[in-house]
Simulated assay, not measured.
Amino acid sequence: MVLLFSCESDDINRNPFIPDVSFRFDLNLNLPLYNDLNIIGSPIYVDNAGVGVRGAFVMRTGPSDQFVAWEANCPNQAPNNCSTMVLEGQNASCPCDDYEYNLFFGQLLNPPQDGSRFFNLKPYRAVLAGNSVIISN
């Protein structure tokens, strides 16, 4: 009886716009391309083929091994010609709908006022291993 009531589906919270893709990509912190990841709050955009749907934003959020990675496709848009977000300091914005997202927490900063449903940024794993940050899904 307990099993019947303790199981729930997270389908209602699942983003229908961004497909799940499997990937793993290493960012070597010794390379100049990823130098900004040595500074807290200085995000980079990784647009290598096979990384997420439209690439990923990666940022160090604290000392030592604290990193976040987010899908770069607008979370409230299906992948299309305007759905790749752009970096704006420690935020990312979507040119399709003018939504802006905080890269520390992945939250939408300017939610719709009409009560319509919206999604925050899609997170990826970001783990420090030696001198590399490994991002994956």
Rank of each mutant, 00 (worst) to 15 (best):
M1K: 11
M1N: 12
L3I: 15
F5T: 12
F5A: 10
F5L: 15
S6T: 14
S6V: 15
S6Y: 11
S6E: 15
E8R: 10
S9Y: 09
N13L: 15
N15E: 12
P16M: 08
F17L: 01
P19L: 03
D20P: 04
D20M: 06
F23E: 07
L27P: 01
N28C: 03
L29Y: 04
L31E: 15
L31N: 10
P32S: 00
N35I: 08
L37I: 11
I39W: 00
P43E: 01
P43W: 00
Y45L: 15
V46F: 00
D47I: 02
D47S: 10
N48E: 15
V51N: 03
G52L: 01
V53E: 01
M59W: 00
P63K: 07
Q66Y: 06
Q66D: 14
E71W: 00
A72I: 08
A72V: 07
C74N: 05
P75K: 00
P75Y: 00
P79F: 09
N80M: 07
N80V: 07
N81C: 05
N81D: 13
C82A: 07
S83V: 05
S83C: 12
M85P: 04
V86G: 09
V86Y: 08
L87T: 06
G89F: 13
Q90A: 09
Y101F: 15
Y101S: 07
N102S: 14
L103V: 07
L103K: 05
F104L: 15
F104Q: 10
F105H: 12
F105M: 11
Q107S: 11
Q107Y: 10
L108Q: 11
L109K: 07
N110S: 05
Q113M: 14
Q113G: 12
Q113S: 13
Q113E: 15
Q113D: 14
S116G: 10
F118C: 02
N120L: 08
N120H: 11
N120D: 14
L121N: 02
L121M: 11
L121E: 04
K122T: 13
L128D: 02
L128V: 01
S132G: 03
S132N: 14
V133F: 04
V133S: 02
I134V: 15
I135P: 04
I135K: 01
